[in-house]
Simulated assay, not measured.
Amino acid sequence: MRISARTQYALRAVTELAVAPPGPVPAEKIASAQNIPRRFLDNILLQLRRAGLIHSQRGPDGGYWLARPADQITLADVIAVVEGAPEHAEHGGYPGVARPLADVWSALREHEETLLTEITLAHIAAGTVSGGRPETRP
């Protein structure tokens, strides 16, 4: 799986919102904290707002905040908004001894999807991801 720069920026921006104190966070603060070009970030924030993952408020006290608690937004949610629904290329049709490769690609895709739906913004914000998996802390 390849993750575009746009998707990486989106994930960094929503993670910044996940750790922010309650209330709107100005786009400039997000851009500065995550070293994201402001104009690029504005387009990403608009896309996330239209998808219902974040809310916004205009004005001098305006900014952005998560539309749901961080433990209810997965990495898969954000990726789906920015990248669109994952494409499932069919790898069938491998001839002869290479035929099992189709099963390998299918299993790999399933593992990616499972992992991305298990990890929430709360896991990222709390630093509770180890070895690519969310940790459970007592």
Score class of each variant (00 low, 15 high):
Y94L: 15
G23H: 10
P37I: 02
L17V: 03
P86D: 12
Q57F: 04
V82Y: 05
A18R: 03
T120Y: 08
P24G: 11
I44C: 01
L48M: 07
P95G: 15
G59C: 08
P134G: 12
V25W: 00
T136H: 11
L115V: 13
V81W: 09
H91I: 12
G59H: 05
G59V: 08
R39V: 10
R137Q: 15
L66E: 09
I124M: 15
R49N: 12
A5N: 01
L11G: 04
P26A: 15
G132D: 05
A122Q: 11
D61P: 00
F40A: 08
I54N: 09
L45I: 04
V14I: 07
L48P: 03
D103F: 04
G84L: 12
V81K: 14
A125H: 04
A31S: 11
G93M: 15
A20D: 00
M1I: 03
V82N: 05
V129L: 08
L108G: 01
V78S: 13
H88Y: 05
I79H: 06
P134R: 14
I119Q: 06
Y64D: 06
T74Y: 07
Y94D: 12
S32M: 04
G131A: 15
E112I: 08
Y94C: 13
G132S: 06
G127D: 13
I119F: 06
L101T: 06
R109A: 12
E112W: 00
A18D: 02
E87C: 05
M1T: 04
V129H: 06
L46T: 13
L17K: 00
L115I: 11
A31C: 03
L53R: 12
L116V: 07
A122Y: 02
I54Q: 09
P21A: 13
I124S: 09
G132Y: 03
L66Q: 08
A89L: 09
A70Q: 05
